[in-house]
Write a protein that binds this DNA or RNA. Structure first.
Lengths: 192, 192
DNA sequence: AAGCGTTTTTGACATACATCAAAGAAAAGG
DNA sequence: CCTTTTCTTTGATGTATGTCAAAAACGCTT
């Protein structure tokens, strides 16, 4: 009889909306996945460190950013049920040059790189990994194209349309740097 | 005895720098891959059509662009030995909203989507697909981050550093729209 | 070599947005 | 509940780059 931790259901649903997993994979997944909590402002990952985890966000909000000329540039903000990692570091064993920080108290499930690779030895899980990254790739692509040729207001409206949760919950400055404008400009845009 | 078309060697080398393929996969790959040539300015793919091919560029140069307010925005320019497709259309069976156009006379190898999927039933090929897209994802990511917070000159210098071939061979206007500046600005940057 | 279409350069001008600075509002913390 | 810190708003000013238009250079084709 297969025992799956209660914590795992959201994640398993997420995966099984792409591929059905057989009990062998489910069991491994259940064993490999660990739950962890972070307080607001705590870092899940820091620039310069190697990223050897992939995360699933159960609750809260996590911001990915990098530092350029002493300024934090938000890359993306993740909300509930999203899966994220610092892919270059994770897949190429290099040092990350980005930070992952909880912007609210957050609860995550993570799988270590080595365990993730073990899961990927199962073709059904490998197939999931491929579709996960394909979707992420396509989304990035669409986002970049849409943001590129818009003015500040257009960028904000676009982000609002595709990620209303972020607009509601994230700080002004974080949102602004995500779409490449200053927070002063964003404040004025919001005013009307 | 396995016969592999001469045309295929470049592509096979490219794949086998990631995974060694056994003869069964090699044979299928050889059967599925077709060579095609395009004249300068001919389209490999047009917006509104479904993209059901993935290409390997043997020689020449291919530009991916989309049209925004009647203007062509270059997304990227591919040079020899690169693999490309319109991923959203290819993987989600939607209509492409981008064009692929030869900017020089070009020779490509393509594999149809259905054959590509057949190849992906082999875990070793699936593994290649995953690493291919991972690398593309990471490269896009790095590029976007680097281009975002630079001024026009910085963007140009960055592109020159990562893709000198494009700078040498592509048209001014194509390069300019790729980094989100006007061709007049780029012309002035080049002047000094 | 001449001619024609395309691409690049140059110039004058307009403007969206950044920057800097300081006040005001909200949140955190004792 | 009051204090301190952090975040957001508002205002004044500067500048990089866009836009429009025309000239110059380039590269095919005959």
């Amino acid at each position: 009889m297969l025992f799956i931790s209660l914590n795992m259901h959201q994640l398993i649903n997420r995966i099984e909306s792409t591929v059905k997993l057989d009990s062998e994979v489910l069991e491994k997944l259940n064993n490999y996945a660990k739950v962890e909590t972070y307080l607001k402002n705590q870092h899940l990952l820091e620039s310069g460190k190697r990223c050897n985890k992939i995360w699933f966000l159960k609750s809260g909000m996590v911001r990915k950013y990098h530092v350029h000329n002493g300024k934090e540039i938000t890359i993306w903000i993740y909300t509930e049920k999203e899966i994220f990692t610092a892919l270059q570091s994770f897949s190429q064993n290099t040092c990350a040059n980005e930070y992952l920080q909880a912007c609210e108290n957050s609860e995550v499930i993570y799988i270590s790189k080595s365990n993730y690779e073990k899961l990927n030895q199962f073709p059904q899980f490998l197939f999931f990994s491929l579709s996960l990254i394909k979707r992420a790739f396509v989304n990035n692509d669409i986002r970049t194209r849409n943001l590129n040729k818009k003015d500040a207001k257009g960028k904000y409206e676009y982000l609002k349309a595709i990620a209303p949760e972020i607009i509601k919950r994230a700080k002004l400055g974080h949102i602004a740097s995500m779409i490449g404008i200053t927070q002063e400009t964003l404040s004025r845009i919001r005013k009307g």
